[in-house]
């Protein structure tokens, strides 16, 4: 994969395990980047499929985030709502290399296209 396809968003240490931080996209959908307690990283659009709650502010357990507004559980891996709830939030391919986090550039913008 060419370097240019990946967007470097900084070192992994800037996100504490068990939390998420946000990445606004001008003219597009804000992205939430998660660092789980099992030391995995995920990026999803920062909007719960239920009522657009900011998922970045939810409690993270395993590879699931619980939306702060109405406690929907969203899989960070697939973006899908878990349990009896139905819905899906776009995920953004992410890779970690040499301690830095990269997002797939086209998906960062793709998330915006979908929203437009």
């Amino acid at each position: 994969m060419m370097i240019g396809n990946w967007l470097d968003i900084g070192p992994i240490t800037q996100i504490e395990p068990g939390t998420a931080r946000t990445l606004p996209v001008v003219g597009g959908e804000e992205i939430a980047v998660f660092h789980t307690m099992r030391n995995e990283f995920f990026a999803i659009v920062n909007k719960c499929p239920h009522k657009q709650g900011p998922l970045s502010q939810g409690i993270v357990h395993g590879d699931v985030v619980t939306c702060p507004l109405h406690n929907w559980n969203i899989s960070l891996r697939s973006g899908k709502a878990l349990g009896d709830d139905e819905g899906c939030v776009p995920t953004i391919p992410l890779k970690v290399d040499a301690g830095r986090i990269y997002l797939l550039r086209s998906a960062v913008i793709g998330a915006q296209d979908k929203a437009a």
């Binding site: 968003i9 939390t19 992205i31 960062v108």
Partner: peptide, 21 residues
């Protein structure tokens, strides 16, 4: 302070927007 700050802000170039449109 990290709880309050964004990681960064992405400002896509118009060209890359078109490329991916």
């Amino acid at each position: 302070e990290k709880l309050h700050q964004h990681l960064a802000e992405v400002r896509p170039f118009p060209a890359s927007q078109m490329e991916n449109a």
